[in-house]
């Protein structure tokens, strides 16, 4: 591989991975252990103050890693990609709101979709000029996918221990990174998703030390909104005939693991069987997307 690409990947991956490992290591260590059995007690998110800190830490790690990887946060943003750190702040607001309200699960998903919709028009102002027939499918699909992604991601944080939840968020993020790089031919967008994936890898590693802790639900919301916006940028600015397929498969990576919670025998499953099924359900759509992107990639780029 090109040494410049390797250097760029290292700059993009190491800071968020280390940030996730160290910061979330400290935050999880400060939390109380949950019940070892699955069910209502394990399904609870960490206490609100710590959960809020999880949200702030995830946003802070993403924004600072983004600045390191892409040479700072532009003020004002020059390109749609430059707007991602600002989208992260909006996602933080949604993440926090979703943890502080009674109907946070649905409110978070709806607010995440609203942020996605607003970001869509900020990314591509030309959409203001487009006809209803041109924009409606994009708007509807963005709302559905972000809503589903956020609902799935936050449910994974609610229902699973931190290390499983982090892995369940990591799989769509890493998969989207590969799809954007291979399928959309954009290392930059791939690296944007890769920053999230590296941070989640760090969190997953930290969480293996404190296996009975939970991840703040807002972290799932923030990751799903941000990843959704990177994928949307792939469709808008590096379109391929399979853009929408990649977006749908990424969203399914968040949504499918939650099917386990609807299974009648789910509460009786052990931690590891449940985690295994969830991880498999997350991997299937994402691996399909990555395989399609790799198989349909043409000749070498750059």
């Amino acid at each position: 591989m090109d040494p410049a690409v390797l250097r760029q990947l290292a700059i993009g991956a190491l800071p968020p991975a280390l940030g996730g490992l160290v910061v979330f290591g400290a935050l999880l260590a400060a939390d109380r252990p949950r019940s070892p059995t699955l069910g209502a007690s394990l399904g609870k998110a960490p206490a609100r103050p710590l959960g809020l800190l999880h949200c702030i830490a995830a946003t802070g790690i993403f924004v600072s890693s983004f600045a390191v990887a892409f040479g700072g946060v532009r003020q004002p943003p020059q390109t749609a990609f430059d707007q991602l750190p600002y989208v992260a702040l909006a996602a933080l607001g949604v993440g926090i709101a979703s943890m502080m309200t009674r109907w946070g699960h649905w409110l978070g998903a709806a607010a995440g979709a609203a942020v996605g919709l607003v970001a869509l028009f900020l990314f591509k102002p030309a959409l203001h000029e487009a006809t209803f027939a041109e924009t409606a499918p994009l708007v509807v699909l963005t709302c559905i996918l972000v809503f589903g992604g956020v609902a799935g991601a936050s449910q994974s944080c609610r229902a699973c221990r931190a290390w499983i939840a982090a892995l369940l968020l990591l799989i769509p993020a890493a998969g989207a990174s590969a799809m954007l790089t291979l399928g959309h031919y954009s290392l930059k967008l791939g690296q944007g998703a890769g920053v999230l994936a590296a941070m989640l890898l760090g969190i997953a590693l930290a969480a293996t030390l404190w296996r009975k802790r939970s991840l703040g639900v807002g972290v799932g919301v923030i990751v799903a909104v941000l990843l959704g916006m990177v994928v949307v940028q792939g469709h808008l600015f590096a379109p391929t005939p399979r853009s929408l397929l990649y977006a749908v498969l990424t969203a399914l990576g968040f949504i499918l693991p939650c099917l386990v919670d609807f299974a009648p025998k789910a509460p009786r499953l052990g931690v590891f069987p449940s985690a295994g099924i969830r991880l498999l359900l997350a991997v299937l759509p994402v691996a399909t997307g990555v395989a399609i992107a790799a198989a349909t990639r043409t000749s070498e780029a750059s």
């Binding site: 390109t79 031919y185 290392l187 967008l189 600015f237 590096a238 000749s299 070498e300």
Partner: peptide, 20 residues
């Protein structure tokens, strides 16, 4: 003269042709 490279050049990494 290289389709893969051309798509990469049109992507947000370089010209971001859909945006600019």
């Amino acid at each position: 003269a290289n389709e893969g490279r051309d798509r990469h050049l049109r992507s947000p990494d370089f010209f971001s042709a859909a945006e600019f």
